[in-house]
Simulated assay, not measured.
Amino acid sequence: MKLQNKVVLITGAARGQGAAEAKRFAAEGAKVVLADVLDAEGEQLSRRLEGRAIYLHLDVTSDESWEAAFAQIERIHGRCDVLVNNAGIYRPAPIAETTSKSAEAMFQVNQLGTLLGMKYAAESMKKTGGGVIVNISSIAGLRGFANAIAYSGTKWAVRGMTKVAAAELAQFGIRVNSVHPGFIATDMLKENTAEVNRIGAEAAPLKRHGTPEEVANLVAFLASEDSAFITGAEVAIDGGWAI
C-alpha cells in the first residue's frame, strides 16, 4: 500500500478506533505518532508497537499543543506525511436536554480540533511538498439522527471543512478526505442504550456493527498513494446505513 516509512500522526490514538488505525499503519511499515490526552494508555500502545511508534501528549483544542506536537515531530522525523484527525467525543441527548456545556465540549474536540489539526498539518506539509489528511466524521455527518443534535452538528461541520480544505490545499499537493463510520464496535457505543445499538446493527443492510479494524483499513487506503486521485471525498463505512 506504499506506506513504508511514511510519518503518520493519529489523534485520539490511545484506544478504540485510533488504536486500530495506529496498528494498521505500523503493520504497513509507517512511522506512527500516537497523540492523545490519555497518556498511560498511549504510552502502553507505543510500547506494544515495538519501535514503530512514539507517543505525544496532544490536546487537540489547543493551538499551543498542536504547535508543540509538530515541532517535536519535525525534530524527530523531519516531516509529517499523514494526519488522521480521529479524536472525538460523543454525548447523545435530545434537543431539550442538550446543554451549552456539552455542546461546547463536542465543538471543541470534534470540530475545532479537526480545524486546528488541518491548519498545523498543512503548515508542516507545505514544507515538504504535500501530504494527506484524513478527517474522521460519522454517519451522523451524512444523515440526521434523533438525540444527537450537537454531535451531528460537529460531524456535518467536519464533512464541510474537509471539502473546503481539499479545494484550498490541492495546490500544495495535500489531499483531504473524510471518513464516515456507522455503528462501530468501540467503547463509544457505550454512550448509547442497548436498544439503540441493537437497532444500529439490525437497520444496516449488512446486519451488524463494523469493527475498528475495518475503519482502519479504509483510512490506510485513503492515506496511501493507491488513492492518489481522491480528494474532497466523503466515504461512508457504515454497513449500508447511508444508502
Rank of each mutant, 00 (worst) to 15 (best):
Met1Lys: 04
Lys6Asn: 09
Lys6Tyr: 08
Ala13Glu: 04
Ala13Phe: 12
Gly16Arg: 04
Gly16Leu: 05
Gly18Lys: 00
Ala20Leu: 08
Arg24Glu: 15
Phe25Thr: 12
Ala26Pro: 04
Ala27Ile: 10
Asp36Phe: 08
Asp39Trp: 08
Asp39Leu: 09
Gln44Ala: 15
Leu45Tyr: 04
Ser46Glu: 14
Arg47Pro: 05
Glu50Ala: 14
His57Ser: 15
Leu58Lys: 08
Ile73Tyr: 03
Ile76Asn: 10
His77Tyr: 15
His77Asp: 14
Arg79Ile: 01
Cys80Gln: 11
Val82Arg: 11
Asn85Ile: 10
Ala87Gly: 15
Tyr90Ser: 05
Tyr90Thr: 04
Arg91Asp: 14
Pro92Asn: 07
Ile95Gln: 03
Lys101His: 10
Ala105Cys: 00
Met106Val: 09
Phe107Gln: 00
Val109Arg: 05
Asn110His: 01
Gln111Val: 06
Gln111Thr: 13
Thr114Arg: 06
Tyr120Lys: 02
Ala121Ser: 14
Glu123Met: 14
Met125Cys: 06
Lys127Tyr: 07
Gly130Thr: 12
Gly130Glu: 07
Val132Gly: 07
Val134Pro: 01
Ser138Pro: 01
Ile139Gln: 13
Ala140Trp: 00
Gly141Val: 00
Ala148Val: 07
Tyr151Trp: 12
Gly153Glu: 02
Trp156Lys: 09
Met161Tyr: 11
Thr162Arg: 05
Thr162Asn: 06
Val164Gln: 11
Ala165Tyr: 09
Ala166Gln: 03
Ala167Ser: 15
Gln171Phe: 03
Val176Arg: 10
Asn177Met: 13
Pro181Phe: 04
Ala185Arg: 13
Ala185Ser: 15
Thr193Phe: 02
Glu195Leu: 04
Glu195Arg: 14
Glu195Phe: 06
Ala201Gly: 09
Ala204Asp: 12
Leu206Gly: 07
Gly210Arg: 00
Gly210Met: 01
Glu214Trp: 01
Val215Ala: 04
Ala216Val: 09
Asn217Lys: 13
Leu218Lys: 08
Ser224Gly: 12
Asp226Lys: 14
Ser227Pro: 09
Ala228Gln: 14
Ala228Trp: 13
Phe229Lys: 00
Phe229Ile: 11
Gly239His: 03
Gly240Phe: 02
Gly240Ile: 13
Trp241Asn: 00
Ala242Cys: 04
Ala242Phe: 00
Ile243Ala: 11
